[in-house]
Design a protein around this nucleic acid. Sequence first.
DNA 1: TTCATTGCTTGAGGACATCAACCATCTACC
DNA 2: GGTAGATGGTTGATGTCCTCAAGCAATGAA
Lengths: 144, 144
Amino acid sequence: MTPTTPTSTAPSPVQLMDQLAQAAAGYYRAFAAVAAERGLTLMQGKMLSLLRRPMPMRTLAELLACDASNVTGIVDRLEARGLARREVDPGDRRIKNVVLTEEGEETVRAIRAELMSGLTGLEQLDEEERLTFQELLVRVFPLA
Amino acid sequence: MTPTTPTSTAPSPVQLMDQLAQAAAGYYRAFAAVAAERGLTLMQGKMLSLLRRPMPMRTLAELLACDASNVTGIVDRLEARGLARREVDPGDRRIKNVVLTEEGEETVRAIRAELMSGLTGLEQLDEEERLTFQELLVRVFPLA
DNA sequence: TTCATTGCTTGAGGACATCAACCATCTACC
DNA sequence: GGTAGATGGTTGATGTCCTCAAGCAATGAA
């Protein structure tokens, strides 16, 4: 039986894990909704967000934690929509750098702006709270 | 040009949003890995975790933020693996309540335990930090 | 050169996602 | 009652993603 925990009582580590699950789900729900408004899937949106600087497909696969063959398809679709393009790396012609088009850049800006405006709670944190939040996030999810 | 921010400086709201993206990705990466060890997909794992109490398919669709038709397939697969089963609600025979089997319960316990042990950072927070963390999460991701 | 490695693509098969159409049951109302 | 509308669930079609195995092209080192 879960005891009725008044909000002023510290959650157990397990309860906090559940809270994290909620938060992670909330984040992706918001992100997916913003992407969907532009006819993009979650993965396409994620990839666009990563592409603030050009990157080899290989790097994208690592950052998205998915198979390289997967990236091929996603970039295909972004390219078909005119949001990104492949450029053969002059230094190593095996490598294809994915670059955002002008429209792609604009889309990323719009997605980020709308996502930010959706997370109204973020704006309301003061400096100290933001710092604390960041430190806690980093401690629980170190590195990448 | 992003200024080199010493870790002792508060992140801007936008930087914090990026940090949240990292954390959310980290959480799901860990969750998916734990689920995959048992041959389960992310969605199957999520659904199992929700089923700590029996629920109508409709409710599952809402909690997973997906179409009802989608739930049908996921429950089909869980059922085929003997992790869950459907029970017609005696009060309203349109409703099918999804119930974990014994093996399903065991799987949920194992997934939660392993996920918890993977998030080593969580255990290291003291009571006050956990409370602070929870409050921040709730403020940024209110309600569901 | 030759060979092993690396980056990317292709193809097959399963799992989700969305949407429309459908059946069964329940509810309201005449 | 009996009919109409709403609700819960399933099915089917189509597209996206996921994994894995196989393959091609370019690189780097022996």
